[in-house]
Design a binder for these strands. Structure first.
Lengths: 244, 244
DNA sequence: ACAAAAGTGTTGAGAGTACACCCATGC
DNA sequence: GCATGGGTGTACTCTCAACACTTTTGT
């Protein structure tokens, strides 16, 4: 893993002129972490303690170190901020404009992640001093171009929820159909029809009826379902198009 | 545009410890350039002249300079290779694994682009010495992880063609419905039904009949259409879902 | 008994798919 | 007149959207 200080000539397309060293850039990994809490979709923001933007809110993230991949950096930053180790994490977009960071050219590789609020609570004893959840509908002023990043993440999440299984990552392992529906409603920001939703979910064949019931409430107990990942994989192998 | 040599402390989430300088990384922009030629989908590859991978084919691209954004770097590299200035260019994914480049940690921000072969021919008098088009179905051995990048680009293109207007970027301004259909077939790698294709395209309302005819061939002349971008925008404003 | 959420089917509209023949031109 | 690609319509299937009442439990 040498740093290869020697440049590469024009035909090699690495560096513009012979023997010119490669320019190096500060690269940050920033993460938009979503969760559902109190029937609303939230993102985690941290308060900046250093200028510029002292006291402003921004996305959890930080510089990529020399000895780690960009993905690893994103995961590490998330762990440092939240103490969480298992999340659904997916790369979003790379922001490489010159003027996006007033301190100089910082290239930001952005990610989005989703966690079940229940699990998060258990592990988030860590450094949460300056971290807070904000409803995506009521964001504070964000530093850098982080508002744009959140918008993009939300757009991506709203798209993906329709043809992938991200929504399940926001729920505990066992959940009721109403909870699943509420997750969809909160992500999409709109109501969905109960009967159509249940019909579609059940006929997709990606839910396993656990035969258990949720008795917590003071109403009729609801059936608990689990996400049947194995069935999804089997369907995919057969070439049938199914949300994943 | 100062380089900001001072680090940022833990709460600031920029660097792990107080006063630690930010690590810097070599960042490359690599482009998968598609075109349609001889009824087949092709990508542009360049032959590497420097070790490692001397003589191997790879994607056009190069290191991002200090004074340019990542997008600008992608466009510049493409111009240097092909002489082309107007392309549809879209960011694809950022590859940040430690071991993807044997020379050290090089973060690659990948893009895909599409051009009309007709226009390309006109301008591509430039440095094409070591550049060649390859059918996506018959790629040579590629250096680095460039084969993975091409696969991802192809997947993205095949998806996008169904709900955006990328396909039009592969054609001249005026085209026949048969040419448009062939573009779709070549991208998707499968035949589509002529009547259904025409019905759908016409009812989308994004084509403008130029009233001109293509007389070139030795058969019945075909009507020439143009992409009606303005109509797409109007439809979008109304909230109607339409390919863009 | 009543409040509160769980659970359940049918119908109509529109989109997608399958499918085969005539038309206009150059040679 | 024939070869070549251009151009056209219908019927079936399936998915999506709209829509209201009964059931089960706790209090």
């Amino acid at each position: 893993m040498t740093e290869s200080p020697n440049g590469f000539n024009r035909l090699g397309r690495r560096g513009a002129s012979t023997q010119a060293p490669q320019p190096h850039h500060a690269v940050a990994a920033d993460v938009v972490l979503f969760t559902i809490q109190d029937e609303s979709l939230k993102v985690l923001l941290v308060k900046r303690a250093t200028p510029p933007f002292r006291g402003w809110w921004s996305l959890p993230g930080g510089f990529v170190r020399k000895d780690e991949s960009v993905d690893e950096a994103a995961l590490r930053e998330l762990q440092e901020e939240t103490g969480i180790t298992t999340v659904y994490l997916e790369q979003l977009y790379t922001f490489g404009d010159l003027d996006r960071d007033p301190r100089g050219h910082v290239i930001s590789v952005s990610y989005y992640a989703v966690v079940d609020w229940g699990q998060f609570q258990l592990r988030a004893r860590a450094a949460r001093l300056s971290a807070r959840w904000f409803a995506v509908t009521h964001l504070p002023n964000l530093s850098f171009d982080h508002r744009k990043i959140v918008s993009l993440a939300l757009e991506r999440l709203r798209n993906k929820v329709n043809y992938t299984s991200v929504a399940f990552q926001l729920l505990p392992k066992k959940f009721t159909l109403s909870e699943l529906q509420r997750a969809y409603e909160v992500i999409l920001g709109q109501r969905v029809d109960k009967r159509n939703f249940r019909k579609k979910m059940l006929q997709l064949g990606i839910l396993r009826n656990t035969k258990e019931q949720k008795v917590e409430g003071r109403q009729r107990p609801a059936r608990l379902y689990a996400f049947a990942e194995t069935r999804v994989i089997k369907l995919q192998e057969k070439g049938i198009i199914v949300p994943f």
